[in-house]
Structures are given as structure tokens and as C-alpha cells.
Design a protein around this nucleic acid. Structure first.
Lengths: 240, 240
DNA sequence: ACAAAAGTGTTGCTGGTACACCCATGT
DNA sequence: ACATGGGTGTACCAGCAACACTTTTGT
């Protein structure tokens, strides 16, 4: 077996770089929680092969840009947000995944607060879609979406990233509903409250919900400081 | 803000592909458990900039090759193994990560049974190194290694991938030591045994260890069928 | 008054942890 | 006989699940 005959990346000067042309892009799975439903921000595909189908927001990687910066740029350009949860999930490189040629894409998961930025979406080809309604998408974007949602399910049980989907101040009902919506299960309300309180991650804001047509609940916020301190000492899980 | 002025990947015909040259590679973090220590298979870097430093095994992506295939090919060419745990972990794309030019690399985690293949390593620039001994590496490979080890720590508590590091038949002591080595903690031997037995993932092989200078332990194997069945019904965790 | 959801405690069970003694093998 | 690790059981404690009634607000 000619194991040594193959050039290794470590021994590959720039002249040996591939003689085939390919592109590298980032694609963002931008998720938000709105009116009790987990939603994803999509754009209509302009590519003839996928006319009328929905597509993730993405762009080609720039020559002086690293991957995180590229995905951040896409988010900023499209939503106006400059501060959101953004994390690389997986890279997709099937040979035929793009009809125009070889395009490898790095998928990012973004969690945004829909209320914060919904006024800033000026591009009217952009729309929020309930994740559960989406059956098909352009390219392999449905696969990418599913992969990112699965990553989110794991993630919210390992780290308190879920608060990125809510407003600064939120009710326990909202928090519970986001968990339930993402994980696809239901929790007992009393046990959920106890569990969250005992984490010590919630700050009581001493405020109430307004304009609800039932008894208003108290509002809480995510206690980031408490989290930063406790995560130094021990693993902080939110497992259900 | 010129959000619409930017070309989107969906609208980018092949002519708009980047005019800068860059390369895409895969790098494999090949981990094995040998004599009580977690080890990684490394090669000496031939690149002048990193002369004498250790490097992960990798190669450039081929034009007709998807990412998983490329990493599998690297494994097969270098170790002779054709059947191992192999999973994409993360893509690294810092602008200056490669001295020869822009190279984006997709990191893969591979778990191999050292005993199975140690005779097949013909390339004598290849060596196993205790993960805990490695302080510096070529390129950003130390960062990649650390990332993959952290991924492994999460992974072994979510899925029974740890058995890929052991021989077909193993003692409970070996299994416990691999867990301890990877997670960096120690477990009570009796509780560990109980826990593993109650998972139902172990098959008693009705065999004993040989040539140990103490009372020989029973040998077990991973019951893959039982796992496949139970994972359909419920999440199978191995959390400690 | 009614509808809707907030807020609150207890009990039983399950699973984790801590812990000590005898046994089988090789030297 | 000694050293090394194998094999086993129990008691305590913490955390989880199941479960019902009263309270507050808006209509």
C-alpha cells in the first residue's frame, strides 16, 4: 500500500494546493422562539435549480476572514444583531451538495431573541418559519437544519444557552415552554420550577408580567455572574 | 446597510467562486488506549517551519471525495484499519493557521484499538504519544487535539463509543480505567460495576483474563444489539 | 362568575455514594 | 506467605416524579 506516496498536508507547499476549484461558505441556522414556537429565519432561494424553495442564510468565506467572523458577518448584515449566541456545528461537504459546483459549507447555529431584532429585518425575502413546519429546503439545508436542531437539544441540557432565545426578563412559563418546544417533551410545572430555582441561575427581577389575561407571573433573568462562578467549580447541567 | 448588495451563496454561480486560492484538508485525531494511558498517533512534521514538531495525520480533500471519505482514507492509508469509530468534530479556519497559505481543515476524531493494528504501522515517522505528555504541536494541532479530547469526554457519556478503544473482550478494570483516564476522575470500583451491569450493555463472555499476576477477572464484550434496541426507546446515557 | 395560568408541599421511589471483607492467582 | 486486584452487599442520602388545591388577574 503506497501510504508514503500520498502527499501529506504537512509536506504540501502552496504550489501543491488543489487544482480543482471549490468554494467554502458558511450557513447560519438562525433560531428564535416566537409565540410559543421555535422558528428559523430563512430566505427564498434565487438559484433556478431551487426556485421558490427556502434556504439558510450564508455567504462565501472571505480571503482574510476566519470562519467565526464570516458567520458573524452574515448575522450582522441580515438581522442587524451584533451580539448573539453563535457556534459552529458541523461542516457539510458532499460532492454534489451544490448544483453550481463544489461548495463545502460550515454550518453555524445562532440563537437570537426575535423580539429584539424583528424590526431590523429589511430584506423582505427573509421570513421566520416554524421549524416543525419545514419539510423540504434548497440544497442539503434541511439536513443542516435538522443537525443544528439536534445540536441545540444536546446543548441546552449542557449549558444555559437557552436564555439567548428569550428576552432579558422572562416568566417561568416562557422558559418552560422553550425547553418543551425544543426537546419535544412536557414537564410538570412544579418540578420544573423547583429544578430551575435550585440551579441558582435565575435572578428574581421583582417584576410581573403585564397585559396577560390571567394571573401575571413573576419575571426572572439569567444570572450570568452566578453561572460563571459555579462553572469554574463544577459542571452545570440542565438535564431533564 | 448594504445587506442586499452582498452576494449570497444561493445566488452565486460557479463564476463567482473565490478568486483567492485556498486549500481544504482533513486532520485526524487518532486516539487509542494503551497500557493504561490515552494515546494519540502523530507524525513528525516535515515542514521547515515546524521541523521536529509533532503533527496530526491529515491530507488534502480530493475533488471527488466527501469529508468523511477523506478522513477514512487517511486512517486506512496510515494505519491499515478499515473499520473504526470516526466522527467529524470541528473545522478550523484561522487565517494564519498554516504557514504555506490559507488552509482550512476539518478535524476528525478516530477511536482505534491499539492492539488490533499496531503491527500495521509501517511508517516509522508515526508514533503513539501519551496525550497528557503533549505540550506543543505543529500548526494549531494542539488546539485541535484539545478540542477533540474535550469532545471525547462529552461523547463517552452520551454514547457507548468507549468500547472502540478496547479489544473485543475486556475486563471491567480495563473499562473503568479508560473512563478514568479520559475523564480525569476516579470511580469506586463496586459502584462502577453495578452501574455498568445495570445498563445491560455488557455481555458476559464466560472467559477469564490470562497471564495476569493476580486473580483473573471475567471478560465482557459490548452488546451492540442490546444497545441498538434500547436506543430506539430511550436515551442511553453513561453519565458519571 | 368564569377562564386561565400562577403559586405552592409532600410522599414515595430510584439511583448514587460511601464503605470492608474474603477470594483467586502468580511469584 | 505475600502482593495484587477480583468479586460482592448494605445503608444512607439526594434528587426526581407524581400529584391537587388555592390565588390572582382579565373579561
Amino acid at each position: 500500500m503506497p501510504a508514503l506516496a500520498k502527499p501529506n498536508i504537512n509536506t504540501t507547499p502552496i504550489e501543491l494546493m488543489p487544482d480543482f476549484q471549490f468554494a467554502l461558505s458558511v450557513d447560519c441556522v438562525i433560531l428564535g422562539y416566537d409565540e410559543g414556537v421555535l422558528k428559523v429565519l430563512l430566505i427564498e432561494s434565487d438559484l433556478p435549480a431551487y426556485k421558490g424553495q427556502w434556504s439558510l442564510l450564508g455567504d462565501l468565506l472571505g480571503p482574510e476572514e476566519d470562519l467565526d467572523s464570516a458567520s458573524y458577518r452574515v448575522l450582522k448584515e441580515r438581522t442587524g444583531l451584533t451580539d448573539m449566541f453563535l457556534e459552529q456545528v458541523k461542516t457539510f461537504g458532499a460532492v454534489d451538495r451544490h448544483p453550481a459546483g463544489r461548495v463545502i459549507t460550515v454550518a453555524y447555529l445562532a440563537l437570537v431573541n426575535v423580539k429584539d431584532h424583528q424590526l431590523k429585518i429589511t430584506d423582505n425575502a427573509l421570513h421566520w418559519h416554524a421549524v416543525s413546519d419545514i419539510k423540504t429546503m434548497a440544497f442539503d439545508h434541511k439536513l443542516i437544519l435538522d443537525t443544528c436542531v439536534a445540536a441545540l437539544q444536546r446543548k441546552i441540557q449542557e449549558e444555559p444557552v437557552i436564555f439567548n432565545l428569550l428576552e432579558e426578563k422572562f416568566s417561568l412559563r416562557d422558559l418552560q415552554h422553550v425547553f418543551e418546544q425544543i426537546l419535544g417533551v412536557e414537564f410538570d410545572r412544579r418540578n420544573f420550577r423547583k429544578k430551575l430555582f435550585t440551579t441558582g441561575l435565575l435572578t428574581d427581577e421583582n417584576e410581573m408580567e403585564k397585559q396577560v389575561r390571567h394571573r401575571p407571573g413573576k419575571l426572572y433573568s439569567f444570572n450570568r455572574k452566578a453561572y460563571e462562578q459555579m462553572k469554574r467549580k463544577t459542571f452545570v447541567g440542565l438535564q431533564f
